[in-house]
Design a protein around this nucleic acid. Structure first.
Lengths: 173, 173
DNA sequence: TATAACATGTAACAAGTTACATGATTTC
DNA sequence: GAAATCATGTAACTTGTTACATGTTATA
């Protein structure tokens, strides 16, 4: 019963069209690197698992005398499973998404170092924000853009929160 | 080389005082259930690993004829390791925190169902917000409160974002 | 002729979850 | 006398990463 995000991601990509593993991995690497960190070997393994669970069917094909490809197609069972994963995931807030344990332990660093580290974090967040604003939405799918917009929301929220926290620190100095 | 959040959490709790496993697990279950989902068995295993890595030392003690306890104390090496995990984690934004893949696939649900599911999500987020606002900060450590405040920031950001998205959907109906 | 792109894996390991085991003691 | 609390684990399983293996074909 693997009910995880990687499964949902791969099923979701196969909802659009049948694809072979390499093709999926390329797409993820080129376009979804900010959304998932799944490794290629993992993707191949998950595809195998999904085939064993009959969520996808496999056929092999060959173009010229290139290496054999295994083309995966989502099955009706797979579509059902995908939709049920999607519904559950959308309806429930995953608290795991919200945690960053390190903030619990700020007291173990000096105020100066805390400020310096938060400054670094802020810079990396603002850089990410700037970069994303300069490269407008790719355009593959309005919903993908939604997901990226949601990430932007969190980046902005954290950027502003860090500024507030630092202002407070400065006020108490 | 376990450089994960669970290690940091346990080391962080041991920074405050030496504790035995059960004690730590109780504390986590009672106070940190929104911050981590670590299971008790996992905590015991991580404590063992940390002992093997000399991040903590162990001594056994017994109170009356209760079961033996294994009391863990952080070592100087452990303190160094903790601080280095903390610094790295603070300075870098973890993109994994931002991802919710399901939003990429909204197009596979009808507009009506999407709205209904987002409504559910919104309700659970708002309920969580209300509950947290009604139970003011526990008070064990100003930094723990900071971590919870940060979670609040994300909950608020997502609540508002979902409202915007739904308003847009309604506008396009 | 080297190296990048194409294409799929395997093996060894690390980390985490689940369900279960154990046995005393305190509380209802 | 039953159930909860105290206290620590083990065994089996799932998931994921890392590093490596393999062999072809197009490109520089």
């Amino acid at each position: 019963m693997p009910a995880n995000e990687r499964t949902m991601l791969l099923l979701g990509l196969l909802m659009a069209q049948s694809q072979h593993g390499y093709q999926i991995n390329e797409f993820i690497e080129r376009n979804l690197s900010t959304v998932t960190s799944m490794k290629k070997s993992t993707a191949y393994a998950v595809l195998d698992r999904m085939a064993a669970a009959s969520y996808v069917s496999v056929r092999t094909e060959q173009e010229g005398n290139r290496p054999l490809r295994k083309v995966y197609s989502i099955t009706p069972t797979g579509e059902q499973h995908f939709l049920s994963l999607l519904r559950k995931s959308l309806a429930t807030e995953d608290l795991g998404v919200l945690g960053n344990i390190s903030f619990m332990f700020l007291d173990y660093l000096s105020r100066d170092e805390t400020v310096a580290l938060l400054e670094l974090r802020l810079q990396s967040i603002d850089a990410e924000l700037a970069q994303r604003r300069s490269v407008p939405p790719h355009g593959f799918g309005h919903a993908v853009d939604l997901a990226l917009e949601r990430q932007m929301t969190f980046l902005e929220a954290e950027s502003q929160w860090i500024r507030r926290v630092m202002a407070r620190q400065a006020g108490m100095a």
